[in-house]
Design a protein around this nucleic acid. Structure first.
Length: 324
DNA sequence: GTACAGGCAGTAT
DNA sequence: ATACTGCCTGTA
């Protein structure tokens, strides 16, 4: 890479476009060449500067590059109210991505996905927003979750203007705590209103403290989250991975479940765990099966299991022809 | 009309 | 321990 100012050069290549479209963060929208996202009280924005410059073959370091993304776009970042350098935090540019990808490349499937979805990053979410977002995520799909969160933001967030357009901040924990069940249900969240209330109550009372959980180990933080009504294994793992710095978390949803029975069944087989015998035909996991499967996969992928999960997840959605 | 979508809690076996 | 069931809501 000849341009020392390019983000590829400074941070190892990353592609915010593929990350925001991966479904790991719900409140993003594309307008023209720009993407706008809600990050708590702020609206963050990046624009793809398509300067037509294509990457040249610089001595093999690009050999893993997917041919589809051989063009190195530049990106411009801004926000309102302004947060300097938010992209570093949100796209986890502080991670040693070279090390992460190198370790995970030991697995054949993840290695393929890394090549294919070059530049995909894990995104770091604002913890309270992440908690409430996944409180809405049970038994539904991404389109519905987006709708619920947009409705909640309109009703309980603060309107602000950015680039001459209207946006809403994410609702404060306090406002969601004060809301009644029917206020929340008016946003189309249905029975999940009880989970939202439970999360708000735990946060307001100090019973659940995200700053505290960030500094605890995976197991301990997870058991705290599981005490909240409506938060189960999968949702807790998403919250841990996306906002509480648990890169070793490995959320298992139906897509990852498919990937496991297809590509990683040998791992469970090797474990000799009898309660996993029926897993190949029945892809839905009981609580105990989830815990067991999660343990083996986390042991296999190691401290960066969450990155592996993200690449596998994105891959499964892609080959299934995702639509949202 | 019916099945289903990035789960979970409650209840019955 | 494991299996089964209902749940809000919109879309196919």
């Amino acid at each position: 890479m000849s341009d020392p100012d390019s983000l590829y050069y400074r941070y190892y290549y990353f592609n915010p476009t593929i990350s925001v479209s991966s479904g790991q963060m719900f409140l993003w929208q594309q307008i023209g060449n720009s993407w706008y996202g809600t990050y708590g009280d702020n609206i963050v924005k990046f624009t793809v500067l398509d300067d037509g410059r294509t990457s040249n073959s610089d001595s093999g370091s690009n050999s893993d590059r997917d041919s589809n993304s051989s063009k190195d776009n530049k990106f411009e970042f801004s926000s309102y109210p302004e947060i300097q350098g938010w992209e570093r935090k949100v796209f986890r540019l502080d991670d040693n991505i070279g090390k992460v990808l190198s370790i995970l490349s030991n697995d054949a499937l993840v290695h393929e996905a890394i090549k294919k979805y070059h530049g995909l990053r894990l995104m770091r979410q604002e913890p309270h927003q992440c908690l409430f977002s996944f409180a809405c995520a049970s038994n539904t799909n991404i389109t519905m979750i987006r709708r619920m969160l947009m409705n909640l933001s309109k009703k309980f967030g603060t309107k602000l203007t950015f680039d001459g357009r209207e946006f809403y901040t994410f609702p404060s924990t306090k406002s969601l705590n004060m809301a009644t069940l029917s206020d929340l249900q008016a946003c189309g969240v249905g029975y999940r209103a009880k989970t939202i209330k439970a999360v708000a109550k735990h946060l307001i009372s100090g019973n659940l403290d995200t700053d505290h959980l960030i500094h605890r180990e995976y197991e301990e933080a997870k058991s705290e989250l599981l005490k909240v009504y409506g938060i189960g294994n999968k949702i807790a793992d998403c919250i841990l991975l996306f906002s509480l710095e648990k890169l070793d978390a490995f959320p298992i949803d139906v897509w990852i479940s498919k990937a496991i029975s297809r590509y990683y069944y040998w791992l469970l087989d090797e474990s000799g765990d009898t309660k996993l015998d029926k897993l190949s035909k029945n892809e839905s996991l009981s609580t105990n099966q989830y815990t067991a499967v999660s343990r083996y996969l986390r042991r296999y992928f190691g401290e960066y299991s969450g990155y592996a999960q993200q690449f596998i997840y994105y891959h499964m959605r892609e080959i299934a022809g995702r639509r949202w």
